[in-house]
Simulated scan of single mutants.
Amino acid sequence: MSRPAASADIFQAIADPTRRALLDRLCNGEQSVKQLAEPFEMSMPAISQHLHILCEAGLVSQRKVGRQRLYRLNPEPLKEVSDWVNPYEQFWQEKLDALGKYLEENPCSET
């Protein structure tokens, strides 16, 4: 089953480590571009481009207060990512459970 084109934007948006870091920073609440850009060694226009992509994907919203733009996390679209990842998480949990069982049945002996 393929994803609709609009949802692919979410996956593309979070594929970039800078955009994921921006989302992490927005978990702490609404922030201006200047606040968001502080830890990054890149230009303000580059940060603005990343924020634009996040806004287009619906992961971030913005509002204007005077001359300042404030950005806020919108986590709802990430549910689609979580839903997609969930079966793989179950797969790895089963593998870890099997490994735990194997280790209990075959204890390592120290020499």
Rank of each mutant, 00 (worst) to 15 (best):
M42H: 08
N74C: 11
N86A: 15
E89D: 10
P107A: 05
V33M: 07
D9P: 00
M1F: 09
I14Y: 03
D97A: 15
C55T: 13
E30Q: 14
M44I: 15
R3I: 10
A15S: 13
L26Q: 06
P39S: 06
K34D: 14
E89A: 12
M42C: 10
Q68C: 09
Q12I: 07
V60G: 02
L78F: 08
D24V: 09
G58K: 04
L54C: 02
H50T: 00
L22F: 06
E80M: 11
P87M: 07
L96M: 10
S82N: 12
S43K: 09
R20C: 08
L26H: 05
K95G: 05
P39C: 07
L36W: 07
R67G: 14
P107H: 05
E80T: 05
V65A: 12
A21T: 03
M1W: 04
G66C: 03
Q90L: 12
A15M: 02
S48A: 14
Q31E: 08
F91K: 11
A37S: 14
N74R: 11
E76M: 06
R72C: 06
T111F: 13
Q12A: 15
R25H: 12
Y71N: 01
Q93F: 04
Q12E: 15
L96P: 01
Q68H: 07
I10M: 01
V60H: 04
I14R: 01
H52W: 10
K101P: 00
R69V: 07
N74V: 11
K34E: 15
D9I: 04
R20L: 08
S109H: 13
P75R: 02
V60K: 05
L96A: 11
M44R: 15
P107L: 04
L59D: 00
V33R: 11
A46M: 13
E104Y: 02
M44L: 14
S2A: 12
A6C: 03
K64F: 04
A98N: 12
A46P: 00
G100R: 15
L51Y: 01
S61E: 11
D24Q: 13
P77Q: 01
V33Y: 03
E94R: 15
S43P: 00
W92Y: 13
R72D: 09
E104H: 09
K64W: 04
S32M: 10
